[in-house]
Amino acid sequence: MSFGGLEKPAGYRPMSEINVTPLVDVMLVLLVIFIIAAPFMASRLALDLPQTEQSDAQVTQEPDAFVSIAIDPQGQTFWDEEPISVEALKQRLQDTARANPDSEVQLRADATVPYGRVVELIGLSQAAGLSRIGFVTDELPGALGAPAAPAR
């Protein structure tokens, strides 16, 4: 008669497969962290935009096609938050006008930028064939439609 307890055990054999479950768990957690943190890591151009009073009735709808041009306090011009030279700006404005002449130029200029610099960009846009120009501003605190500052 053969009993199982009388046989000598063969011993433990090393595992030949890698357990990938912990690796997948860590990678998914890292992916979620990067998805959440990505918008915060994007470089934003810090501008002190002019402030104006505006109500919800004065705000128009977002245009179908637009380009965003910004001028920082040092006078540097940006195309969608990327620095650009005047020559390259002229070329991009002409390309945009050829592709869609109804595109709007949304101009964001710091409050300290001289008026002449803003007019220069308006002239470049019109010379390229883009006549729709929008000025982006911040809303004054306490203005109609703006949340009032808390009383202390």
Rank of each mutant, 00 (worst) to 15 (best):
W79L: 09
A57K: 10
A146I: 05
S2N: 01
R98V: 08
E87S: 11
W79T: 07
V86R: 07
N100Y: 06
A143W: 02
A143H: 01
F135R: 00
A128Y: 06
V29C: 08
P114V: 12
L28A: 10
D80G: 03
L89V: 09
E139K: 14
G4D: 05
N19A: 03
A70P: 01
S43P: 12
A148G: 00
E82R: 12
T21S: 13
A127C: 04
A57V: 10
D72K: 11
P83W: 07
L31G: 08
F3D: 01
S16I: 15
P101Q: 00
V118D: 03
S125Q: 06
D25G: 14
G11T: 00
P101E: 00
N100Q: 08
A97M: 12
D48A: 01
R132K: 11
A37W: 15
V29W: 13
E139P: 00
P147I: 08
E87W: 00
T112W: 10
A109Q: 06
A111N: 13
V118C: 09
A70I: 04
G123D: 13
R152Q: 05
Q106F: 10
L23H: 14
Q61E: 07
V67F: 09
S2P: 09
L140Y: 00
G145P: 03
V118Y: 07
N19F: 13
G11H: 00
N19W: 13
Q61G: 08
F66Y: 15
D80S: 13
D95R: 12
V26K: 13
Q74C: 02
M1D: 00
V67N: 01
A38F: 05
E104A: 11
D64M: 11
A143T: 04
A149W: 05
I84Y: 13
V105P: 05
Y12V: 05
N100S: 07
Q106K: 10
L23T: 12
A65P: 00
A128Q: 01
A149V: 11
E81Q: 13
A70W: 08
P141L: 06
D48P: 00
Q74H: 10
V136C: 02
A46E: 10
D56W: 15
F34I: 06
A99D: 13
E87I: 12
A57Q: 05
L28W: 07
W79E: 03
Q91P: 05
I133Q: 01
T60S: 08
T77P: 01
Q54R: 13
A38D: 02
A10D: 06
E139M: 11
A46M: 06
L45S: 07
D56A: 15
K8M: 08
T60A: 12
P83R: 12
